[in-house]
Amino acid sequence: MSNARWATVERPRAPRPGRSWAVWVEPDEVAGAVRRAAAGDKDAWDAIVRSFSGLVWTVGSGHRLGPADTAEVLQTTWLRLLENLDRIREPERLGGWLATTARRESLRMLRLRGRELPTDDEHVFAREPAPGPSPEEAVLDRDRDRGLWRAFSKLPERCRMLLHLVIVLRPPYAEVAETMGVPVGSIGPTRARCLERLRRLLVDDGNGPVAV
């Protein structure tokens, strides 16, 4: 598997207060791409897929689906968008639409597989990081970024999903809450708690195992 494609993703722009940090900083840009894709512009579709697949993937993985099931959730989510391209009511909020659709598809997949819904308890699923550099670390050119990714990877699944969602989706976080299946009031405190954990992991990196 080549990493070339991963490296072609554009650098993010500087964050602005109250805005998303995704490739699409301007909601108008997203809405424009949705309109162009609806009119048959393949490049616009490709750009949308490139920009939001990471989010959809995170939602699938965040529901404890394996890579094959997550790939199917992703494919079905894009299919849903394709069917609804000219019917999306708020195209500028495409990220939220995709995240909630991906959640629905993830839950459907879990039901199909006869598995239980994921627990809300983050501690149950604290993930064991694999030893050695990951392929992800190989595409990050700065030590700082590799360290940040390493720390992020050690966070519990739910924390990773939440942080990814609040990065890509704009406030207010109704869609984040819906995608996480939690009350909207809990998003702020959980976000703060997850960031605090991330800070601790960053500070302790290199000092051996961290009690999370």
Binding site: M1, S2, R5, W6, A7, V9, E10, R11, P12, A14, P15, W21, A22, V23, V49, R50, S53, G54, V56, W57, T58, P67, T70, A71, L74, Q75, W78, E136, E137, V139, L140, R144, D145, L148, W149, F152, L163, H164, V166, I167, L195, L198
Partner: peptide, 22 residues
């Protein structure tokens, strides 16, 4: 979060063949 956004954007993506299918 801004620093994390820059990292996630580059690494937190599905495998290339999944993106291609989409």
């Amino acid at each position: 979060l801004a620093a994390l956004a820059g990292v996630l954007e580059r690494v937190s993506t599905p495998p290339p063949e999944v993106l291609e299918a989409a």
